[in-house]
Amino acid sequence: MHATDTDILKAAEAWRREGRNVAIATVVETWGSAPRPVGSHLVIDQDTNFLGSVSGGCVEGAVITEALDVIADGKSRMLEFGVADETAWQVGLSCGGRIKVYVERVD
């Protein structure tokens, strides 16, 4: 079964209860043609298992990498990806949009 927004937050809760270390990434702002709307979630565990999406697959890799740091130090982070951004160029938000993603650990 594919993941819907309902499943994602339920999975985040279930994973944490199993004792896994978990972070939730949320799209908080978009400009231009962003592939996923504000409020979309991605949940990640310490072994880089993930569910959901914050883009059409363009920046998930970078978000997961950052999420591992968030899981490690517990500090929430705001990430920004867009065409004018060096990181975005590397990770490739090919639609030309810009997105801001908030990543937090589930404690």
Partner: peptide, 14 residues
């Protein structure tokens, strides 16, 4: 996010 908060959010949805 605290687990209790996430849990409460999921409970409201359910």
């Amino acid at each position: 996010m605290r687990l209790s908060l996430l849990s409460a959010l999921n409970a409201e949805r359910a």
